[in-house]
Amino acid sequence: MFDWLLGSVLRSILIGSIYTLMALGLTLTLGVVRLPNFAHAELITIGAYVAVLSSLISSDISFALILAFVITALVAFSCHRVVYRPLSNRGATMYTLVLASFALGLVLRYIILLWASPTGYLQVRPLIPQQVVGLIGTTVILNVFLWSLPTAFILVLLLHLLLSRTKIGKMMRSVANNITLAQITGINVGKIQDISWLLAGGLAGVAGALWAILYYASPYVGWFALLSVFAAVVLGGLTSFSGTIAGGFIVGLSENLVMDVLNRSFGVEFTYKPVIPFAIIILVLLVRPKGLVGLLSKTRIVSRVPSRVEV
C-alpha cells in the first residue's frame, strides 16, 4: 500500500545525492573564485552527454564516470582560462561575471542543441544495460541505482579529505577566506583557482553522468537542475561543506517525497514541482539568510565573503 512511499524515498535519496555533487562544485567556485557560475548547468549537461557517448565504446559505468570527470573538468578549466580569468584580471565586477557565465552557458547549451537535434540526441539514455538486482516490496532496484549513492559518498569523502587534510585543501580554504591575505602569504592563487575549477567541473560532470545513467541526457538537464542546485547551495549557507550536503538531500526530498505527498494528499499537480526549490530559496532568504550553517556545525570550507557595510 505504501509502495509509492518507498519508491519516493528511494528517488529522493538518489536525486539528493546527485544534487549534492552538483552543489558542491558550485560551492567551490563560489567560495574560491567568488563566481556564481550559471554555466555550471552546462557542465552538468556535458557530463551527461559524455556518459552517453562513452557508452558507445564501453558499457562500463566506472569508465563513463571517470571520462565524465576528466572531460568536464577540462571544459571547466578552459572556461576559466578563456573567459573568467581574463575578465577578472580586467577588474570585472560581480555582475559582469554573472552575465559572462550566463552568456557562456547559453552558448554551450545551444551548441549542444545544434548538434543533438539533427543527430537524434535530444533525449537519450546511455547504452548501459539496466538490470533488476532486487525488489523491495514492489519497488524495483536497478543496478544503476547502486552506483549513484556510493559514487556520491566516495567523492564527498575524498573532497572532504582533500580540503581538511592536504596542503592544497588548506590553501584553497585560505584563498576562499581572504584572497589578498593568501597572496601575501605566498600562496599561488592562480594555481589554487585552476584546481578548484578542475574539481568543480569534475564533480558536475560525474553528477551529470549519473543523471544520464539513471534517467536520460538532454541539452537541458543541467539548466533544469540548476534551480534545485542553487536552492541546495543557498540552503547550505552558500559556502559550507556539510550545509551543502544537507541542502542537496533536503532539496531532493522536497522535490520527490514532499511533492508526492502534496500530490497524493492535496492534489497538487507535478507541473508545480519547480516552485519547490524556489520556495526554499525565498524561505531561506526571509527566515534565515545564513542557511543551515550554525544549525549543523560551525565548520565551513570557506567563510562567507566579508559583508559590506549594511545600507
Binding site: 508545480y272 519547480p274 525565498i282 526571509l286 539568510p289 559590506r308 549594511e310
Partner: peptide, 28 residues
C-alpha cells in the same frame, strides 16, 4: 528583499528565478 541581501549576486539569482517561477505557475 534586496535590502536583506548581502551577497551582490544573490539578488540576481532570486530575480532570475522569480521570472521563471512566474512562468511555471501561469502555465500550470
Amino acid at each position: 528583499p534586496a535590502i536583506r541581501i548581502r551577497e551582490e549576486w544573490f539578488l540576481a539569482m532570486v530575480l532570475l528565478v522569480t521570472g521563471e517561477i512566474l512562468r511555471v505557475v501561469v502555465r500550470s
